[in-house]
Design a protein around this nucleic acid. Structure first.
Length: 430
RNA sequence: GUGGCUAUAGCUCAGGUGGUUAGAGCACCAGAUUGUGGUUCUGGGGGUCGGCGGUUCAAGUCCGCUUAGCCACCCCA
């Protein structure tokens, strides 16, 4: 074993895992493009201050989870999430000037310096969308629905959609006051964690899992009680629009979200079977962020889906197996003697030029091991070339599936003949 | 950042109370009348027992530290 291992919280995706990983990304991509979202690819790192500004200085992500790199005067940070980058790109490239309403999506790795856990890594992939430039409640519904549709498209069962509204900035101030006066007289009765949350991030007291705290929270004021009329109406319309899409959801007044930029609609998709870390999609509206970052006041909403959690869920639900495994090499060229290797080498290249996927032995194996290797690699057709074949300008063509072997001239028609064998099953199936 | 559990071959794991050259299954490689796969049989390679240090005549086995993984907390995709 090498003395080196992948950095903590990272992993190598090996050839046999790539098809599964790509299947997840491509399935999501297909859904997003159906809803007319267009891909954007910002860089993987940004100026550190971009994240500090957008996520909020006192958030955990900024305080202790950033991968930051100092070079002289410049400080850059590997993106812990993509919303900030997408908004930055939206403004920098003047997308707001040319066509203010944009539906964008991204797929790629994110980085957070956290302690690894189930469904949590330091480098992880997210698939996400950002719909910028509209406050239309139907857009909120679409975004939530698209997230759920991605999860569905992967075949994952048992997920639930939870949402809440945390209103605008003023609503939040009102709510904080209301919550404070509810908790203050009884905070001593709450668990130790909640007492700390009360000081640090009072909203989080609401999603404590302790039975006693939970019971007390049932009487707590909800955001929904203090929303101004406009916010309340918006939220009601989001629900109505979700209904129109036949998308089931639960109102969950405990959903607060950890990043400062969220407003109004916030939502999560959860998969309880995953264990402690069961949120696979998180998202919400961020109507204040674009202005905060120097643009015009522009409403927006988005989500991000964690690929790690999705893969875990697919594994547990038996959806991963069929996508695992190296792609087969359909054609293999075997050679008999040492003198035949050069011919095999050239023959393989000719077939590749004709569009076939071909490999041959580079380990000096004899014929038998070559056949074994070909079978293991999933070859449907093996070409065998020996002294006799060379002299007569032919090759042995073996159909591995049917154990049939025929002799064919080694000429320009060979690729077509091989193709015919490769397609044989398909025809027989019909 | 905090806590619990774990660490033996590529993989899954055996290795009572410390005691000779550390084992199995699978995988890998090779042979079974010398030009042919998937079955079978036979043989083979491969382990600094995560790393460092300690106790001991003797440590895979006991102790300490460290690293990594898993799980949970904080938080989060």
């Amino acid at each position: 074993m090498s003395q080196y291992s992948a950095p903590r919280g990272t992993e190598d995706l090996l050839p046999e895992q790539i098809p599964l990983f790509d299947h997840v990304l491509e399935t999501c991509r297909k859904v997003l493009e159906q809803y007319a979202y267009l891909e954007i690819r910002p860089p993987l790192f940004e100026e550190t201050s971009l994240f500090v500004r957008s996520l909020g200085e006192v958030t955990d992500v900024v305080e202790k989870e950033m991968f930051t790199c100092q070079r002289g005067d410049t400080s850059v940070t590997f993106r812990p999430e993509a919303t900030a980058s997408v908004v930055r790109a939206y403004l920098q490239n003047h997308l707001d000037k040319t066509r203010p309403f944009r539906k964008l999506y991204y797929i790629g790795p994110m980085f957070r310096f956290e302690r690894p856990q189930a469904a949590r890594q330091r480098q992880f992939h997210q698939v996400g969308i950002e719909a910028i430039g509209s406050h239309d409640p139907r857009l909120d519904a679409e975004v939530i629905h698209v997230a759920a549709t991605c999860v569905e498209a992967l075949g994952i069962q048992g997920f639930t959609v939870h949402m809440n509204s945390i209103g605008n900035a003023e609503d939040r101030v009102h709510y904080k006051d209301a919550l404070k006066s509810f908790l203050e007289p009884q905070i001593q009765q709450y668990c130790k964690d909640c007492q700390r949350r009360y000081e640090r991030n009072i909203f989080r007291v609401l999603d404590c899992k302790e039975r006693e705290c939970k019971k007390r929270n049932t009487d707590a004021p909800a955001f929904l009680d203090v929303l101004c009329e406009e916010s309340a109406t918006h939220f009601a319309e989001v629900q109505q629009a979700l209904g129109a899409l036949n998308r089931e959801f639960e109102i969950d007044k405990g959903i607060i979200r950890g990043l400062d930029y969220y407003t109004h609609t916030v939502f999560e998709i959860r998969l309880p079977s995953l264990g402690a870390r069961d949120t696979i999609v998180g998202g919400g509206r961020y109507d204040g962020l674009i202005e905060e970052m120097g643009g015009q006041s522009t409403p927006a909403i988005g989500f991000s889906l964690g690929v790690t959690g999705v893969l875990l869920a697919m594994g547990k639900q038996g959806l991963a197996e069929e996508h695992l495994g190296e792609p087969p090499c359909p054609v293999y060229v075997a050679s008999l003697g040492e003198e035949d290797r050069a011919s095999a080498f050239v023959l393989a290249e000719g077939l590749r030029r004709a569009g076939l996927t071909v490999d041959l032995d580079f380990e000096g194996r004899r014929i038998k091991p070559q056949l074994r290797q070909a079978a293991k690699r999933g070859a449907r057709v093996v070409l065998i070339i020996g002294e006799d074949e060379r002299a007569r300008q032919v090759v042995q063509v073996k159909d591995m599936e049917h154990s049939e072997q025929i002799e064919l001239p080694n000429d320009g028609d060979l690729p077509t003949e091989i193709q015919r064998i490769l397609e044989r099953d398909r025809r027989e199936d019909q």
